[in-house]
Every structure is written in structure tokens, then in C-alpha cells.
Amino acid sequence: MSKQFNDEEIIKLYQQGNDELPPKALDDAILAHASDAISKDQPVIIKPNRWWHYSGIAAAMVAIAVFAPWQYYQEPDFESELKSVESIDKPALPQAKKTAKREPQVEMMELLADDVQLEKIEVTGSRVERVAPEQKAPSVLAPPLEIQNSKGIELRSEFNVVLAKLEENDKNGAEQALIQLLEAKPDLHDMIPEPLEGLYQTLLKNGKLTKPK
């Protein structure tokens, strides 16, 4: 009679010595494939090409190196210009006040000198005009004064000898000097300055001097 097998015996019998494994070559092939798949998955880190970053930084540094000394060179000039403007501005107003007290001749000469300086400043830059616009007033008024004064200065220089003798109370000397001057330069008959007007009229009445036609 054949042996009877229950379920547990059949299962136990099946599991006994059930230790078959895949061959080593198959294991290696599968593990190699798994390894390759992972290595392919690894993201390739591509370093971004940052040459333009570095070149941009280098260009900026070159620009700074080139233009920074230029700026340093410019700054003192700017400051000196400002100082010169300030130095002109400050005495300008007191000088204008002083001129009112001085003699007209001296006043005219100083104003002429001021005008020359102001014209130079105006040429150097418009900024100066903006900084001290009030300084333009004398420069605008200067041309007519200049014309008058230039003639006056020349006349006075011609009559200086006469005026000097008159101030020394040397009336005869003054008369002689005036006669000689007018004989030498008859054009001066029409340009007699006020201090010498009385002396000139006296000489005409005395007949010592004749006014040319």
C-alpha cells in the first residue's frame, strides 16, 4: 500500500533542498546593468561658462584704474575754480561799496580791472556765471564806463603836468604848460578837463591862447 501524504508533508518535501540560485554570470550581468543605469542617471554637472563674468569684472577694473586718476586730477581744478570764484565774489561786493567813496578816476580804473577779471571767469565756464549771477551787473555796465574812462584817463595823462602845477599853486607854470600843450596838440582844445576849464577860459580872454577854428 502506498504512503499517504498530507499537505504539510508535501510542502516540507518541496522546500527541502530547494536552494537553486541563478548562476554567478547572471548575477553579475544584472548587477552590472543596475550599476550602469544608476551611473547614467547621475546628472553630469556642467560648470556654467562664466568667462563673461570674469571678463566683465576685468573690464570694470580696467575702467576704474584708467578713469579714477583722471577724476582725482580733475577734482583739484574744480575746487580751485570754486575757490577762485569765491575769492572774486567776496571782494567784489565790498569793492563796489568802496568805489562810491573813492575818487571817480580811481573808481573807474578799479572797475575796469574788475571787468577784465570777470570776463576771464565768464570765459572759463558758465558755472561761474550761475554761482555769482549778481557779478554780471558791473560787467554789463562796464562798456560805457570803459569808453568814457579810457578817454578820460588819456586826457588826464595829457593834462597831468598842468594839473600838478596847478595843485602846487604855480599858476604861471600851469598857464605856460597848458599853452605849450595846446599849441602842440590843438585837438585838446575841445577836451579840457573841468579843473582846468577856468584857467583855459582866462588864457583865452587874456589873448595868451587862441582857440583854433
Binding site: A34, I38, D41, Q42
Partner: peptide
């Protein structure tokens, strides 16, 4: 293993290769 751990696959393979084979 999906995150790239090769050792995890080795462990899985060692555990299941016999019964599956």
C-alpha cells in the same frame, strides 16, 4: 535604488533572487 543607491539594489537582489529564480 530609484534615488541612485546601488547598495539598495544589491540588497533587494540578494533577498529575492533565489525564490524568483
Amino acid at each position: 535604488y530609484g534615488k541612485g543607491n546601488q547598495a539598495a539594489f544589491r540588497a533587494l537582489y540578494a533577498r529575492h533572487k533565489g525564490p524568483l529564480y
